[in-house]
Design a protein around this nucleic acid. Structure first.
Lengths: 231, 231, 231, 231
DNA sequence: GATGAATGAGAATTCATTCAT
DNA sequence: GATGAATGAATTCTCATTCAT
């Protein structure tokens, strides 16, 4: 049964089939034959729309990011306060995972490990996705609400990493998750870990000064060591 | 050319070959043929030592855990204070990743996703590995040093998850990592996020950081001194 | 050189190739590579048409049964008399063996020994094939033409077994067979072995009575023995 | 553990191990490694005693024939009358199958199909095994007890073929067999099929059947008596 | 005489991709 | 523009046999 459809519709249909297949079997290991059958097209047709199987999968991931990003800033605009905003970011990620755990796995375990990752479209979408989190943290640091002694990237990685590890069992197909509860806890843990304190300024300051002086010494020393190794 | 070695030596050799191969290509995707060639044996020999390819890989992972666990508790016994103990746990994990990033990937992305994971020997090794972290956190909660409002498992997942995400680029083969710095930051973030009283741990933390930085400086200096003696 | 044929034609071609190969070497031991080469396709193509090698062989056997069964009842309908009908059954089997001795071997020595045999399609085809023989014998017993003291299944097995053993050398590749002669002899031997006699009723009757009384005693005794074992 | 044994003992040990292995798994598909392990020797040792795996299996079959043939003629000498003698031949074959169905399968499906079969020692052993049956039939024909219109070889094949087909299910691992009953029925069917005068053998047959049934009853009774003594 | 580690030639099966129709 | 039959290289695993020690 030969159906003529527009390029976009057919492409969408194939991607939907793949997504459905992945969800069903809780795994992104599927052959092109299986994807084609699920999409009610023949195998050759797949390669008319996507040059390689990998490209198809990448498009699938992209589409997911695009959908998430669409209504993203809008929602965030309505949320005030650092804790609340961070909590939204955590919750959004949890929601994505819950909705499509296999796709999340695919991005995390496969795409992101590709040596070419940083030159894919996905990388940029991913970046603009986590950029918001970085900005929220940075803003809180600038206003003094947060201490500045932890690198913002590490803060971001802590949030996403905590979520990632915590939902592992669920992603593997074991048990269920309470995404609201997890979002609360992760946010609170990180928030409190960064919140600045009014009281003990002096000690902190003194320690910080010694710290940064030592850091400079260490850096110098490392450079020296490297240089003498080469020689 | 037929070489005869004892069972143990040959088994070790095969595992070493696999490990080396993984390190070289920064990926655990290798065929049995490739592993055999690297080990200078024919493919059939592999299967005299390991019933399946998967079993070979599992043995590789196990061996790594066993090596790590060997001197583990001993080291931890010498470390006092919650911050320091947590910092050690984080650092150990970072060290493992740095030493063998691909094996870490394999455990994380493949073994742990296996539906049978919970009934493998690896699972139990893994468990006894992370159990210490849970205990440190629990103890701190019991003594009142930590607030008890965050589930201990989430705390553990936050530590390992933060590390995991943060070293991702390195694991993929991009750039390098400073495991001391990361251990410090992750520990501090989590510690502060749980500490019941702001201030008292600050001193511990500040002193420890200065302490470890000085230790590194001293080590480096000694190396430098030795090197310049030779020259 | 890529040849495009319809599914049906190619499937037939592969089965024909396998059949031809078996006939040539008088053995059903052939690798998928050999079958593929004989069929002028690559090995992979085989597995587009049959999920496993075994499935291919089963299809081959099935096809043979289906061809035989097609014109079966029709022919039998035109044959009158127990001896003639039994003779046709024997002859038909001999003809099948002569036409494709290796396939017959395969069914007998391989398929029928599979523990799953009774749940294959082949089993049912086979059953409907030998059912006719059972019916002919049963009918003759009911009308009194045959004695009823031999189980019908044993009669059937005697006919097919006799043929099987007698054509062994031919199947192995030694010599030739005269299927008409064999059909005659087997039929006569079995027919006479079952034909009832008018004359000596009395002795037969007397012996039968003692026989059946002893049979009942033996059965009882066995039950008793079994029961006392349990206790 | 290196044991020095005489050639004969070690050879026997290996053959016993193979026999035991076949019986256990109801199949003669076993690797040389498995046979070696079962025999508590290393693989290399197998090849010191048998040039090839096939030779080992052939020796196994030979040994079985030799054992059967040992007390064979002696037993047969004590049995009088054509029906009884034929019945003994059938029963002996059934007994062999019952005792070692897998070995029987191996001889039937593998050895006998080998193109070289007729030049193996097995062939001659097999021949001298079935020769008795041929002789019994021939003698009966010569004395006029049997009609001569059926070739003796076909008669022999009918007996062995009937048995073969009838026990097939048992050999496959399904159900059990009553070898006395089968021996009776096969013998009677063939005997009556050949007898020149209806009636005279009837008595022999009837008496024999009653005889053997009574023998079985007596055996059972003795067992029962013994069992009840213990209790 | 025995050992047992190692061989190496297959075996069945998978699957992304191509290309004749 | 679509089809879907065919490709072919790669993959894991088996096992009878050899031969250095």
């Amino acid at each position: 049964m030969r159906q003529r459809l527009t390029k976009e519709v057919r492409e969408s249909q194939i991607l939907d089939a793949a997504a459905e297949l992945f969800r069903e079997r809780r795994s992104y290991a599927a052959s092109t034959l299986e994807i084609a059958q699920k999409a009610n097209v023949v195998e050759g047709t797949l390669f008319r729309y996507f040059p390689t199987k990998r490209e198809l999968l990448l498009r699938l991931a992209e589409r997911s990011y695009q959908r998430t990003l669409a209504d993203y800033d809008e929602q965030l605009a309505g949320i005030k306060g650092t804790w609340n905003r961070l909590r939204y970011m955590a919750w959004r990620q949890l929601k994505n995972i819950q909705d499509d755990p296999v796709l999340y796995r695919f991005i995390h375990n496969d795409i992101k490990l590709d040596p070419e990752f940083r030159s894919t479209r996905i990388f940029h979408l991913h970046r603009s996705f986590t950029k918001r989190t970085l900005e929220i943290v940075k803003t809180a640091m600038d206003t003094g609400e947060f201490l500045s002694d932890i690198p913002v990237r590490l803060v971001r990685d802590t949030i996403y990493g905590a979520i990632d590890h915590h939902v592992w069992r669920y992603v593997r197909g074991d048990g269920s998750i309470n995404i609201d509860r997890i979002a609360d806890d992760v946010t609170t843990l990180v928030y409190r870990g960064l919140a600045s304190q009014k009281g003990d300024h002096k000690q902190e300051e003194a320690a910080s000064k010694i710290e940064s002086r030592l850091a400079r010494i260490e850096t110098k020393l490392n450079q020296l060591a490297k240089a003498s190794e080469k020689a």
